[in-house]
Design a binder for these strands. Sequence first.
DNA 1: GATTATCCTATTAAATCTATGGGGTAATTA
DNA 2: TAATTACCCCATAGATTTAATAGGATAATC
Lengths: 136, 136
Amino acid sequence: MLSKKTKYGLKALTFLALQKDREPVQIAEIAKQENISQKFLESILLSLRKTGFLGSKKGKGGGYYLIKDPEEIQMTSVIRVLEGPIALVPCVSLNFYEKCDDCPDERVCSVHKLMLQVRDSALEVYRSNTLADLIS
Amino acid sequence: MLSKKTKYGLKALTFLALQKDREPVQIAEIAKQENISQKFLESILLSLRKTGFLGSKKGKGGGYYLIKDPEEIQMTSVIRVLEGPIALVPCVSLNFYEKCDDCPDERVCSVHKLMLQVRDSALEVYRSNTLADLIS
DNA sequence: GATTATCCTATTAAATCTATGGGGTAATTA
DNA sequence: TAATTACCCCATAGATTTAATAGGATAATC
């Protein structure tokens, strides 16, 4: 299941991408428009800034704004930052690989075999979608 | 992330599918071979029996056995029974649909748009895999 | 210097997942 | 028919993760 963090983060990114100019938008306004807990959104936007998706400005007239063009923001990187691994099990994860304790041999593991395919199919979707695709 | 329940359930199904005949296999043996907590596995096998995948036999020489051919067991149904929804958000789920509280209009929701594609791609994988495919 | 709005840490509340415990029931075997 | 075997079922506890909240610090603007 997709976490609220990811869901809210995607909605916020979409909201910011839809702004005509790249003027800063306050957390409070995004939270209100998208029906998100303001404090929770605050931490999400913060992590999106730290990972290079957003810029911020303090003081009056401040807020958050997109730092790149929506066309350049791939869903693979957004998902990995907000949600973590794209794979459903660590043993098929490209960026968060981990061996299973219980599994003696991945090469003959049925779960591994199935989840490898699921990962690849999800990856293809995320790779072929940018933020720009989501707002069109 | 895939739950242990689903992971263990898939491993158990695979294990049973690999038995030459359809002789019952004891919970204890499956648990040992696949490194699964016996009591936990017990509840998983029970739910697989109740949903028509497995049969069981009590008393000496008893255990669980596959009730259908591996070719007839689609991953879509296995996943739905063990894991629940295939979709990552309820608003794009075919079998477990639910409207989002916060979202005023699904048709213009970016999360909805993205997750619809992810669901479809996962669905295609699960539909094209039977238990037989996982053991070959 | 007052106001605005982000920044940061810590904590809590809730939900879900995983595992365990203990006894009950049915089938088999002798 | 008695003993053994192995599934059946309920209840609960422990662990982990997620979601949300609180409170104050910091920086920029007017």
